[in-house]
Design a protein around this nucleic acid. Sequence first.
DNA 1: GCAAAAATAGGTCAAGCGTCCTAAATGAAG
DNA 2: CTTCATTTAGGACGCTTGACCTATTTTTGC
Lengths: 190, 190
Amino acid sequence: MPRPNTRDRIVDAADLLFYQTGFEHTSFAEIAAVVGVSRGNFYHHFKTKDEILTAVIDLRLNKTRAMLRDWQAEGQGPAERIGCFIQILITNQSKIVLHGCPVGTLVSELAKLDHAAHDHANALFTLFRDWLREQFVQLGRKEDADVLAMRLLAQSQGVASLASAFRDAEFIKAEVHQMRAWVQSLTPAA
Amino acid sequence: MPRPNTRDRIVDAADLLFYQTGFEHTSFAEIAAVVGVSRGNFYHHFKTKDEILTAVIDLRLNKTRAMLRDWQAEGQGPAERIGCFIQILITNQSKIVLHGCPVGTLVSELAKLDHAAHDHANALFTLFRDWLREQFVQLGRKEDADVLAMRLLAQSQGVASLASAFRDAEFIKAEVHQMRAWVQSLTPAA
DNA sequence: GCAAAAATAGGTCAAGCGTCCTAAATGAAG
DNA sequence: CTTCATTTAGGACGCTTGACCTATTTTTGC
């Protein structure tokens, strides 16, 4: 097995560059330069730019699934698990201020390009949506679990969007506090 | 007689194309083709692409200022005026599902490109933010008016983002209903 | 150890881009 | 009518892009 997995390094670099500067604005040459491989080597692993995009989305899907699985395995209640989701905004606040939400900005860009991979990328949103819905169900909100899941998802998107626009990390902290209080208000007293 | 102003027609076309397909993805040739002018004529009015962007942002700023002024002049209370803002999501729902929020997606794209015009575009957000803050002040929430303004702005951004991602106009309607109820809950009984 | 396969390097290509130029058509002013 | 600035047309440039090809090196399987 090839120790220095060039393909993975390319996907990792593309993942980061797509996040930082956007899919369309990132060129083959830039990715290749970051990884330190020639364009020919690059082409050996990925015939088209769309193939790289597919690989990047798959990587993000796998990482997200693993993360959700970890949260599930920590032996806490649904409210605490929803708290893990909200916590992402804090953990990644500096990146979010600079480049927005990785999922939201990618899906938005692909929507504008009318790109075939839009649905594939949106599966990232669906992953969170379904997982959050399940948590709200376990919280005893079976009736409106999906509505609540979408609302929390929308809130986090809005917070990331404005935090980036105004380059304001404090805004994230304040809204996260409010989101936590909101979840608390939905949690039946134990 | 005022001739059909070519410059204005160019800006109008660029405004629409930037919204529908993004700033970077829109080329000189596309705009020129839509307007029906030659690239030379185009260049006579705008030396660089950034000049067009500046003109488009200025156009949007003026349109937004006029809209806010109209809302102010309708002789209603602050709660009704905030309702006008929320109503945009309904009025433009089909466009939002297809292309997202015109302000949010532009600011987000310029942030990713690290474009100098980012702050200029973000003035659109500031316009709404300041106006909303004033409405909340008049609603008797002087202390947290800016927090509430940002929260409502973030909500509308999140709703637009997810509505576009899931291509779901019904989601907009549902969340608008919730947002109206929220404003109502902040309004002191008359 | 050696042949097959995979990986890497670097050159090449057509297309599209923003930009720039010159020249012709138009229209207002004297 | 003439003059001259404005507007329009369209060609040309230099550059970047994604895509593709061939040659060489490295790794793998038997």
